[in-house]
Design a protein around this nucleic acid. Structure first.
Length: 727
DNA sequence: AGGTTAGTAATTTTT
DNA sequence: TTACTAACCT
């Protein structure tokens, strides 16, 4: 008997679903049906009765992926399922940690701090320890601490030898002090969730044994992006039965700078003895040329498990990947804009197009261009709803209401809106709090009743404190939504923005209203706050007919009919800092990023580089990315106006030295961007021409580099001269 | 206490 | 160039 859901799989996918016992690594290339395998496997485990829903641990990196898996498994089973251990690494770790909080010196209702709180707290700690935070910015220290946490190192486990150069080897000491402060506040940061849980599983054999009895199967998504502590956590949980299935693609590992270790996936067979590896290589997304270009590029990487994508479905040959060489970033933006317009005129949907950039600042020139052309777009990524200032402020009010001991929250809003409580007043409160071992809010209360501070600030502070008491009482009586609304009104916070006449103020008021609406979906304030801490939903602007603009990192996992990859220049892509900090490894990661970019495209892919670009305000000449040379000739087609670039640039030193490690001189070849003559002088009205997409036609008008052409099949169109050739 | 100005640094950011 | 931070002035 074979179930219908198995029939929808190809042989390799099916094998990946049906190989249930023992460790399994599914190497899933881009577009090979990874999610389908993962969800079908999950459903298969349940359908065959090998485990109850709560006995499967399914881990993803993003909430989006978790949600998708939940929905799709539910769809296969025909009913939504409850009680699953399905979620992100962080959400699952938080769930475990709340059960065993006391083993980590915490109470079960601990607060989860976000990046902003973390930094403020660490800054306090560092300054308290007498660190000169100008010379040693705390952001750097936070990086050091997070990398330690990523590696499963508690302060005790950090050896003196591993204490970095930061602040004359004081990082370890500051890390310990920071952890102590967190514990005192009954708070953890994101890194702690996995660090502390793993530490518990390592040392408390009873607890570990409980989870061994609980979980019969473990499923892991995006395994190439796991860091060491996530790996340790998984390995501990998989001990014994060893039924762990990790899905991933070493060629898409692009988060090393966040602590991800590609070695985890490369080492899988050694880590999990008896492991099987199944490769998914049939790609159902892209055309042959796109796959060929991507494969040819990634073949330049040395550290790979190796797999070869092949066309899985009945995809047409398609067109070659187009490489455009342009004079400067403005021409690049224009070229992309025109290509979008042309595609749109040919009937393509804007929703199927994306511009994928290496760094956020690159979106600006494209946005400007798209605005000029009147093409709707959306920038994906950017400021997330719950990261916006006004939302974080409001949440600080809510947190301080629910959790009077939440010093960080209280401190954030105590003088917001301005209540005349300056640095001096806050310092006084902190001093008292520390002296008496009180939460900040209680210290403030004491200060008021004992007549501290000057009359005016004291009155303001007292009013705020009375507000908190009132709001806290109101929670039980009136419900959290009513109270939340009262908080924003009575505290004067909402009014502050209403009075604000800056252009974004109105939007902030709207956002706050939206926050109140969102709150109604949760039963209590606590439930809502837990959601906020862990599930920072990225409220994507409604889909719709828009071009997407985002970074390459943000594009992982997505696909588009038509993809634009601008800015392929040495220094920008591969990025200079990636090379400086990562050497050859850094270069390979950049190459993987390029691979991710190309494989996002279903049918059309245009890569471009500009010979001149404004960097930090100054015009700089650039060198084409080495990745351009690594694309196999038979899958690309080169064009563009950059002949001029070749003439102008060689005399100028490139702003970014070419060398990664080992240093590589600028080869003459780097400048040999095969380009067609920039302007095809031979084109004039009346001439018969050929266009790649529209076929043959006759020129009816010429305007700059745009031609009006009456095509024989496609009708009248306006196209760029570089897209046509004399017939 | 709070606004203003000078100096400095500039990738990527699933939670 | 811009955006953010820290000293500086009112």
């Amino acid at each position: 008997m074979t179930a219908a859901y198995l029939d929808r799989l190809n042989p390799e996918q099916r094998q990946a679903v049906e190989t249930l016992e023992g460790p399994l690594l599914v190497l899933a290339g881009a577009g090979t049906g990874k999610t389908r395998v993962l969800t079908t496997r999950f459903a298969h485990i349940l359908m065959t009765g090998r485990a109850a829903p709560h006995q499967v641990l399914a881990v993803t990196f993003t909430n989006k992926a978790a949600r998708e898996m939940r929905e799709r498994v539910g769809a296969i089973l025909g009913a939504p399922i409850e009680g699953l251990w399905l979620g992100t690494f962080h959400a699952l770790a938080a769930r475990m940690l709340r059960r065993h909080a006391e083993l980590a010196g915490l109470k079960p209702d601990f607060t989860i701090l976000d990046a902003d709180d973390q930094l403020r707290l660490l800054k306090q700690v560092a300054e308290g320890a007498g660190l000169d935070t100008r010379r040693w910015p705390v952001a750097g220290l936070m990086g050091v601490i997070q990398r330690w946490k990523d590696r499963g190192l508690t302060p005790e486990r950090v050896t003196p030898a591993e204490d970095s150069d930061f602040a004359n080897h004081r990082a370890r000491e500051l890390y310990a002090a920071y952890q102590e402060r967190l514990r005192a506040l009954n708070a953890v940061d994101f890194g702690d969730l996995l660090l502390l849980v793993t530490e518990i599983l390592r040392t408390e054999t009873e607890v570990l044994a409980r989870y061994h009895r609980l979980f019969r199967y473990i499923l892991v998504d995006e395994y190439q992006d796991t860091n060491l502590v996530q790996y340790l956590w998984l390995r501990l949980l998989a001990q014994g039965h060893g039924n762990i299935c990790c899905v991933g693609d070493d060629d898409q590992s692009i988060y090393s700078w966040r602590g991800a270790e590609i070695e985890n996936i490369l080492r899988f067979e050694q880590d999990f003895p008896g492991a099987r590896i199944i490769r998914l290589e049939a790609n159902y997304r892209s055309t042959r040329h796109i796959l060929g270009a991507a494969s040819g590029l990634i073949a330049h990487n040395a550290g790979r498990l190796g797999k070869t994508l092949r066309v899985g479905g009945s995809a047409p040959e398609g067109e070659r990947v187009r490489i455009l060489s342009l004079w400067d970033s403005e021409e690049e933006a224009r070229a992309v804009g025109e290509a979008i317009e042309a595609a749109q005129r040919a009937g393509e949907s804007l929703a199927g197009m994306a511009i994928l950039v290496r760094a956020g600042f690159q979106t600006r020139s494209f946005e400007e261009r798209l605005i000029t052309l009147g093409i709707p777009y959306r920038v994906v990524g950017g400021a997330k709803f719950y990261e916006r200032q006004e939302i974080r402020d409001a949440i600080a009010y809510f947190r301080a209401t629910v959790q009077p001991a939440d010093d960080l929250a209280f401190e954030r809003i105590v003088n917001l809106p301005k209540r005349g409580l300056g640095e001096g007043a806050i310092r006084e409160m902190q001093a008292l709090a520390r002296r008496e071992g009180l939460p900040l809010m209680l210290a403030a209360d004491r200060l008021c009743s004992e007549g501290g501070l000057r009359p005016k600030p004291r009155a303001a502070l007292r009013e705020l404190l009375e507000g908190f008491i009132r709001w806290r009482e109101g929670l039980a009586r009136e419900g959290h939504v009513v109270v939340a609304s009262a908080i924003l009104e009575e505290s004067g916070y909402l009014e502050m923005w209403r009075q604000d006449r800056s252009p974004e103020a109105a939007g902030r008021v709207e956002n706050l209203k939206e926050l109140l609406r969102a709150m109604a979906d949760y039963p209590t304030m606590q439930a809502f706050l837990e959601h906020v801490a862990l599930v920072m939903e990225n409220d994507e602007a409604a889909e719709g007919e828009r071009v997407s603009l985002m970074t390459l990192h943000a594009a992982k996992g997505l696909e588009f009919d038509r993809v634009f990859l601008p800015g392929w220049e040495e220094g920008l892509f591969p990025h200079q800092r990636a090379l400086e900090e990562g050497g050859l490894r850094g270069l390979e990661e950049e190459r993987r990023l390029a691979y991710v970019g190309i494989t996002r495209a279903r049918r059309h892919c245009m890569i471009s580089h500009a010979a001149n670009r404004r960097i930090h305000g100054a015009w700089t000449s650039t060198v084409p990315s080495r990745f351009l040379e690594e694309l196999p000739e038979e899958h690309v087609e080169r064009a563009g106006s950059a002949a001029a670039a070749r003439l102008a640039a060689p005399g100028l030193a490139p702003r970014f030295p070419l060398a990664a490690r080992p240093p590589r001189p600028i080869e003459a070849a780097a400048w040999e961007v095969p380009a067609r003559p920039p302007r095809q002088a031979a084109l004039s009205v009346g001439q018969r021409v050929f266009h790649q997409k529209f076929g043959y036609g006759r020129i009816t008008a010429v305007e700059d580099d745009k031609l009006d052409i009456a095509f024989e099949k496609a009708g009248p169109k306006r196209v760029l001269d570089r897209f046509v050739e004399p017939a």
